[in-house]
């Protein structure tokens, strides 16, 4: 493998559990040093994909290469080159910070001369200097997550898999956590991270949206925002919201309508009703509406659009 090879290549990867298809012919290529976010609703197949890439699950079909190794056939070689953090905190609560690090360092056979330095780095990174001998179960969740990340990168893996690493962590700590991931990426580490926090997707170089085991869209956050809606996004104050949503559903030119907080988000395609017509159209039906404002779509808008299939389950989010 030369340095320009992609870090992760996924080709037609499929996992079936009995008659349930968790991951359905997934294709994805991730380059070195990239941070790719995996976004999708619960049960979309994010964790299953990551577990296959870690060699924890055997793919039913298709193949995947991580750091140049086939995950189905060479899981042991793959494991030497990856760091993994699962959605559930999984260090030993009854061991101290140092003991956990020493344990995982030993499992990965971090060279002896390097070990002290790596452990010091992990401790500093997690901000746990001076608390090395504290039992891990007594740490707050943010510290635990950073320590888990520290354990996962002790052996300097070129590829990191993070499965909802920040679930249950307070916003401030999540922020710090992402700073760490960016530092690692700057050092050339490739990261595949799954999350269901929309705002976190903005931290990624590219975002892969998956739903029901299939890849729905991929691109940088700005690409996704720009091209995926199939129209322009408007925001509008109106009352009552529910009635407006109902009325707009079948109007030609309204690609999508959804309630966002106390406002309505509407996607309009060319050739149908225009933004300027909307207040009058609604007013005629007894709904008060202010003139719509054009807004930049958030990833959440894109997400709703793609996942809801836009035509059947409009307004589901």
């Amino acid at each position: 493998m030369t340095m320009v090879e992609p870090a992760i290549i996924i080709q037609g990867l499929t996992k079936r559990f009995q008659d349930f298809t968790a991951v359905d012919h997934l294709d994805l290529t991730i380059n070195q040093g990239e941070i790719v976010g995996f976004i999708g609703p619960n049960g979309a197949g994010k964790s299953t994909t990551i577990r296959m890439l870690c060699g924890l699950l055997q793919p039913t079909e298709g193949q995947a290469f991580v750091a140049g190794f086939n995950v189905g056939r060479q899981p042991e070689a793959v494991r030497e080159h990856i760091g993994y953090m699962s959605q559930k905190f999984s260090l030993y609560g009854d061991l101290t910070v140092r003991e956990n690090l020493r344990f995982f360092g030993g499992l990965y056979r971090v060279p002896r001369h390097d070990r002290g330095e790596r452990m010091a780095f992990a401790i500093a990174m997690a901000g746990l200097a001076g608390r090395e001998d504290v039992l891990v179960r007594t740490l707050a969740s943010g510290w635990k997550q950073r320590l888990a990340l520290g354990c996962a990168i002790l052996h300097r893996p070129p590829v990191l898999f993070l499965d909802e690493p920040t679930s249950g962590v307070e916003p401030e700590a999540r922020r710090q956590f992402w700073d760490l991931i960016h530092e690692l990426a700057a050092g050339g580490v490739t990261t595949l991270v799954s999350t269901h926090y929309m705002d976190e997707a903005e931290y990624c170089n590219r975002v892969a949206l998956i739903n029901r085991g299939k890849l729905v869209a991929i691109g940088s956050p700005s690409e996704l925002r720009g091209h995926q809606l199939g129209g322009e996004l408007f925001e509008m104050d109106c009352a009552p919201l529910g009635a407006a949503l109902k009325v707009l559903t079948d109007v030609p030119g309204v690609e999508e309508a959804a309630i966002f907080g106390d406002k309505l988000h509407i996607v309009l395609s060319a050739g149908g009703i225009t933004a300027g017509d909307l207040p009058g159209f609604l007013g005629a039906r007894g709904i008060h509406a202010d003139p719509p404002r054009r807004v930049t779509p958030s990833l959440e808008d894109v997400f709703v659009h793609l996942v809801s299939g836009s035509h059947e389950t409009r307004g589901a989010f």
Binding site: L56, I82, S86, S90, L91, G93, F104, L107, Y108
Partner: peptide, 14 residues
């Protein structure tokens, strides 16, 4: 159950 098994199994341990 705790999840540590998964963490260990992704390491190169046999």
């Amino acid at each position: 159950e705790v999840g540590t098994l998964e963490q260990i199994m992704v390491s190169p341990i046999r």
